[in-house]
Every structure is written in structure tokens, then in C-alpha cells.
Amino acid sequence: GSVVKEKKEKALIEVRPYVEYYNELKALVSKISSSVNDLEEAIVVLREEEKKASEPFKTDIRILLDFLES
């Protein structure tokens, strides 16, 4: 629970300088966080969101995924 939350919060802070739609990304992460149990599940849902998103938000999600998977 809290470790996953920390990882996601740290990821958002780390990617902030590189993303165009930070507030939207943060809102998406919050929405996903409330419906998943762990980081792996969150990553799966983020990948689905990435497929549906259009640029440049798609790239923002990709940047976040790269950080979460590192």
C-alpha cells in the first residue's frame, strides 16, 4: 500500500520536468491508484490508458511508465 503510493508519488515528482500534462497525469495516477492493489496492476492499467491516449499525453504516460518500471 504505502510503498506503492510512495513509488508513484516519487515517480510523479521525477517526471514532472519532462511531461507536458502534469496535472492530467497526476489525476490519472490518482484515479488508477484507487482501483488497483499494487504497482504491477497500476502499470498494466497505465499501459491500457497509453494505448487510448493521443499525443502528447501518450508520451507523458510513457515517460511515467519508464520511471515506474525502472
Rank of each mutant, 00 (worst) to 15 (best):
V36H: 05
E50V: 08
V4E: 11
P56T: 05
E40T: 09
R62L: 05
G1K: 07
G1N: 11
Y21I: 02
K26G: 02
R16D: 09
A27L: 11
K58V: 03
I13R: 12
L64C: 02
K51R: 11
K26E: 13
E41F: 05
A53L: 03
F67G: 01
F57E: 01
E41S: 09
L28E: 00
V15T: 02
A11C: 14
D66I: 14
Y22E: 02
E40W: 10
K8H: 15
E20G: 06
E20N: 13
L25G: 00
E14M: 12
E69H: 10
L28Y: 03
E9P: 04
K7C: 15
I13D: 13
A11S: 03
E50F: 13
S35Y: 14
E14W: 05
V3C: 15
P56N: 03
L68D: 00
P17I: 13
A42Q: 08
E41R: 05
L25M: 01
A11T: 04
A53T: 08
V36M: 04
D38N: 11
K58F: 01
A27T: 08
L68T: 01
F57H: 01
Y18I: 13
A42S: 06
I32P: 02
S33C: 14
K51T: 08
V15H: 01
E6Y: 03
E48R: 14
E41H: 07
S34I: 07
N37H: 10
V3K: 11
N23F: 13
I43T: 04
S2T: 08
A11W: 14
V19C: 08
I61T: 00
K10P: 03
L65D: 00
V44N: 09
L64W: 02
K58Q: 04
S35H: 10
I43M: 11
K51C: 10
L12M: 04
K58Y: 01
E49M: 03
E50D: 02
S30H: 13
L64A: 02
V29D: 00
S2G: 08
Y22Q: 01
S2Y: 01
V4W: 15
K26Y: 15
I13F: 06
N23E: 14
L25C: 02
E48D: 08
D66A: 14
S54G: 05
Y18W: 05
K52Q: 09
A11R: 02
K31Y: 12
Y22G: 02
L28H: 00
I63C: 03
S70L: 10
K52E: 07
P56Q: 04
K31M: 07
S33H: 05
L39R: 03
R16W: 14
E40P: 07
E20P: 01
D66C: 15
E48K: 13
S70Q: 09
D66Y: 15
E14R: 08
K8E: 13
F57T: 01
D38E: 07
E24L: 14
K5G: 09
L12N: 01
N37P: 08
K26H: 07
P56V: 04
I32F: 06
Y22K: 01
